[in-house]
Amino acid sequence: MIDIMPYLEILRYVLAGALLFGGAVFMIIGAVGMLRLPDFYARIHAAGITDTLATVMLIAGMMLHSGFTQTTAKLALVAIFLFLTSPTATHAVANAAHKAGLKPRLGKVQPPHPRDKMKGAK
């Protein structure tokens, strides 16, 4: 009978490292998307990556890293609150932009800005 506890401990740190690193990579991908994508509606997709997958991976990694302590519970709270607020805020932004008449960019055509359209009508 071999003692598996040390191996589990190593596995825990390896898994934590992988999750943290993966989360950071997704975070970078999301940030590059925020910077490079052509219009607002496309950028929301990039924000979605950071809000959901990267957040979950990073916090899961930190929870594994910290072990079973009070910090773990607090990190779980952070995850829950971020999961409640962040997508809701993104939804609100998208909803507001849509209601304000911001059109997505299709192909190479830049749709007219709602402000200009309003001026033209008056």
Binding site: G30, A31, M34, F40, R43, I44, A47, T50, D51, S86, A89, T90, V93, A96, A97, A100, L102
Partner: peptide, 11 residues
């Protein structure tokens, strides 16, 4: 756009 900024602040 302002919405880009709001999205960025939230992110």
């Amino acid at each position: 756009e302002l919405y880009d900024r709001v999205l960025a602040v939230n992110s």
